[in-house]
Design a protein around this nucleic acid. Structure first.
Lengths: 256, 256
DNA sequence: TAGATTGTTAATCGATTAACAATC
DNA sequence: TAGATTGTTAATCGATTAACAATC
């Protein structure tokens, strides 16, 4: 892309601009770059090279440059990237220039913790409402918010302009909750319940399953054990073995 | 693969068998298949087709068959898969035939919830120890476990044969905790702190960042908004627009 | 045998990476 | 100008998918 023209930059005139078409893998990494950039800004850095930012974000620099090039990019050859310019750019693309309202459904064990999680507020979101189906929990105050009955979802969703629904109910309740969220116009759902949700086209679902993460780690433990236990090898054959799943330095390791 | 020979099946004679070399994407889906299979078993199904299991797991059947073929597979042409045989097979590959001990470090807001999360126990793991660096929290009982000071990690890790470490501390403390876990021989880490960990080769790290999940959803919200707001289109252009990121039915939607 | 369904093939697609020309 | 670093190219790799031969 020649010069600094690019689709959907901040400072758009008039109509909402179309966003650049970003590869899904790139979208998933942008928040990580953003976090690293905020750290850099907080420690007084005004400029950073692709090498430096990539290191802070745990990826290699080729991948970082490729990702940023999709945004139209704001680097200066021979110099690097302007930290605060890049922050603005990524925040714009991710839609973080507005603070989105989140509704959390299910205030059991996990939901309780999510309701109090600082990381949401500090990274662009506002927990605007808590819901539960259990009448015994309705009325409870968590972190300054009153738990409401799920039947109030429709009214509150409009009042609070809910943009994202978080499901933290037991699995058997999750699909019904998803249906209710969709019915009131929510088109983005983060699902912590260990089950598959079926939703109409145009609704995005992301899933976080804590046990699945452990099971994936368990596979790698199992594999490492089966390698070290190879006949007539004994102890720490790990690094010596060919094709070992030995993981290279900064994270990203097994396909995060 | 002809007949039922395959690498690393249960019932291995003598030495620990090498595990099949599984694509990382396949490994990440096996737990989802396992969950679906348990549901099927609980509802009295003895057999399931690739079509049926794929539907229950939210993937297409070609992908499912391809994934299972990597295990050496246990289907019967014209019939389908034996549910309990496949459960055993997947549990074996994932290393779930032993109940792995998990140490949780950081019993703040999120750590507290994780310590009480049922899903770990029910899917093959045992939370064996809780740690915190804050002396004020040491001694507290959570879900039948006493919170210990992080300095006791080395002793307890050996006593309890800790296989997996879960980090639920604030970001600034996470790297030091990871170093301590590695020092006592832990080679699998699940990191909830929003930061990159650097670990030696042979140590696997997976990361769960709740705010990042919301930020990815925010991107998609932003994009949908930029589509519907296209000049002279007005309302719900979503389904009508070419190349829309409209998401097809059962989940998996945006690269889970 | 006829019908059903697996396991595999091969084509396609998207993501990663190293290398380097462009350019500050 | 010389040195540094970006943005892009092109090669490679891994994952997905449809189609179908094998086979129960």
């Amino acid at each position: 892309m020649s010069q600094h023209r690019h689709p959907g930059a901040p400072g758009r005139a008039g109509a909402v601009p179309a966003l650049p078409d970003l590869p899904e893998a790139t979208v998933a990494r942008l928040p990580e770059y953003l976090r690293a950039l905020h750290n850099l800004a907080d420690t007084g850095h005004e400029t950073v090279s692709s090498e430096g930012l990539a290191g802070a974000a745990g990826v290699n620099s080729a991948k970082l440059r490729k990702d940023l090039s999709h945004l139209g990019s704001y680097g200066t050859r021979g110099v690097g990237y302007d930290v605060s310019l890049l922050i603005d750019q990524i925040e714009y693309v991710l839609g973080l220039t507005q603070r989105r309202a989140v509704a959390l459904v299910g205030v059991g064990n996990l939901g309780h913790a999510l309701a109090g999680y600082d990381g949401f507020a500090s990274r662009g979101f506002r927990i605007a409402a808590l819901f539960d189906a259990d009448a015994g929990r309705v009325g409870e105050e968590i972190n300054g918010l009153i738990v409401r009955h799920i039947d109030e979802l429709a009214r509150v969703a409009v009042e609070e302009a809910i943009a994202i629904g978080v499901i933290a109910t037991p699995a058997p309740a999750a699909q019904a909750v998803a249906d209710q969220l969709v019915a009131v116009g929510v088109t983005s759902i983060l699902n912590f319940a260990p089950c598959v949700l079926s939703v109409p086209e145009g609704v995005d679902v992301r899933k976080v399953d804590l046990a699945i993460e452990l099971q994936i780690l368990s596979f790698h433990e199992h594999r490492k054990a089966s390698l070290t236990a190879l006949p007539a090898t004994g102890g720490s054959a790990l690094t010596a073995l060919p094709g070992g799943l030995a993981v290279t330095e900064p994270q990203e390791a097994i396909g995060t």
